[in-house]
């Protein structure tokens, strides 16, 4: 690990200032950043320890939603009584990721910012436009089993690896951010991460000095919630494909509401509101679910080793829709 300074600001204002004026990296749980620092993928001149700032509150909001502070750990979120009762999708997504030891350290803010597990990104000897702009993308034509099939570019086919943000996208969560100038803004989780385009190093909308303070969830909308994660082993593995779904049926047996998000397919939690629009007002059927999958995968492109993700995403979406609508396969 390269030498670095350790800074522990006493306030959010000081943290923002220190982050803006140096090439410091914010550290909270540290499980992703320190891993990458040991690999010299991350080489900050300083780490700014925000882990003791007052951002660890989880509380009901006045409109019936939930405020989850940026420093609330993944474990604290997953075991919270209201999350288990009203947002089981979120508890399920978190519990399906990593290990108990990692979830005990991982924070809400850090988890949103976690980096891809692309082998070319994490191996400093390999070409990677994300880590070393202009060096090329080793994954295109290389080892690409974990890689994206949606929203890729000629510069990068990495995936966003997390589960929590996929659930938060389906739930309509909003990321609360404070800038170095103290200005607060809100960004939907669905718009927080970026597609790689020709700037694959830019993974989310955060600017220098920005700090995530919380994620807020709207009041629960009813219906059934589910998170289905397909992976190569049954614990401690990243998603090949995951589907987060909140689906409500009306008393005519038709779909009244369908909020969906997908993991493992793209550089961000994938969210296509056209799929919900297609499903709402319709009676569940295999033909309808196939149409939904057609829409999801309209622009899908495989890169050899990950070609299987396209039919896998179709089948996983169908299975989830059968489950939450009660339709038999």
């Amino acid at each position: 690990m390269r030498a670095f300074d350790y800074i522990r600001p006493v306030s959010l204002e000081e943290a923002g200032r220190r982050l803006a004026e140096t090439s410091a990296k914010a550290i909270a749980g540290g499980t992703n950043l320190l891993d990458l620092m040991k690999l010299q993928v991350e080489t900050p001149s300083a780490v700014c320890d925000i882990s003791r700032l007052d951002l660890a509150t989880i509380a009901d909001t006045p409109d019936g939603g939930l405020f989850i502070g940026a420093l609330v750990t993944n474990t604290q979120t997953a075991v919270h009584q209201r999350v288990r009762k009203d947002y089981p999708l979120l508890a399920r997504a978190i519990l399906a990721g990593a290990t108990q030891q990692l979830r005990n350290k991982a924070t809400t803010g850090g988890n949103l910012c976690q980096r891809t597990r692309c082998f070319y990104f994490t191996n400093a000897d390999q070409p990677c436009n994300k880590r070393d702009p202009g060096s090329g993308c080793g994954a295109i034509g290389g080892i690409a089993k974990l890689h994206a099939v949606l929203g890729t570019s000629e510069h990068c086919i990495a995936t966003y690896p997390g589960d929590m943000a996929v659930a938060m996208t389906a739930l309509g969560g909003v990321v609360e951010i404070v800038g170095a100038d103290g200005h607060a803004r809100s960004v939907p989780v669905a718009d927080f991460h970026c597609l790689p385009g020709d700037t694959p190093w830019r993974e989310n909308v955060l600017e220098e000095g920005d700090i995530i303070t919380a994620v807020t969830l709207p009041a629960p909308v009813g219906g059934l919630q589910t998170y289905r994660k397909v992976r190569e082993r049954s614990s401690y593995a990243f998603a090949l494909v995951s589907v987060a779904a909140i689906v409500a049926m009306d008393d005519q047996g038709k779909i009244a509401r369908a909020d969906l998000a997908f993991g493992g397919l793209a550089h961000k939690p994938w969210h296509d509101p056209r799929i919900g629009d297609l499903l709402v007002g319709e009676a569940p059927s295999a033909a309808l679910f196939d149409k939904a999958a057609d829409l999801l995968l309209e622009t899908a492109q495989g890169y050899g080793e990950n070609d299987f993700k396209i039919p896998l995403a179709r089948r996983t979406l169908r299975a989830v829709l059968e489950e939450v609508t009660g339709a038999s396969s």
Binding site: Y6, G30, L34, D35, Q101, N104
Partner: peptide, 27 residues
């Protein structure tokens, strides 16, 4: 492994189990 993958370094901090390899003593 020194990367949070194997769990051999697991210790209990303030009652919670963590990977001691993925955290700085200074924190």
């Amino acid at each position: 492994c020194d990367h949070g993958q194997c769990g051999a370094c697991t210790v209990i901090v303030n009652g919670i189990r963590i990977n001691s390899c993925l955290t700085l003593a200074a924190m």
